[in-house]
């Protein structure tokens, strides 16, 4: 992974989460009744979306962790690359 992509990745992941979080707040503020719908298994959207935000945070963190490890491995293999995160 190139250094610029390594630098960009956390910002992209942050942007994705920001959209999800912003969507949750927007629905709460402007389409409140949507949160009462029960789209699956009799559980309402408020709970699905809330759990979804927590699980999304964990998934995005793992993606970042795996990408970061690969980048570290690459920089270890190529000393000229230096410390990726610096």
């Amino acid at each position: 992974m190139s250094e610029s992509r390594t630098h960009r990745l956390p910002l992209v992941l942050f942007g994705i989460y920001l959209l999800l979080y912003g969507g949750f707040i927007a629905i709460n503020l402007y389409a409140t009744d949507l949160m009462e719908l029960t789209p699956f298994a009799g559980v309402n959207l408020a709970i699905w979306y809330g759990f979804g935000l927590i699980i999304a945070a964990v998934l995005l963190a793992f993606i970042y962790g795996v990408a970061g490890s690969k980048a570290n491995d690459a920089s270890d293999a190529d000393p000229e690359n230096g410390e990726v995160s610096q």
Binding site: P10, L11, L13, F14, Y17, Y21, F24, A46, I47, G50, L53, I54, A57, L60, A61, Y64, S85
Partner: peptide, 23 residues
């Protein structure tokens, strides 16, 4: 459910910590 909104907000803050602040 409203108490859970705090859970959601508190955890979301960790995304800022991980992607922006940690390293």
């Amino acid at each position: 459910y409203d108490g859970f909104l705090y859970s959601i907000g508190y955890l979301a803050g960790w995304i800022v910590a991980l992607f922006i602040v940690a390293e």
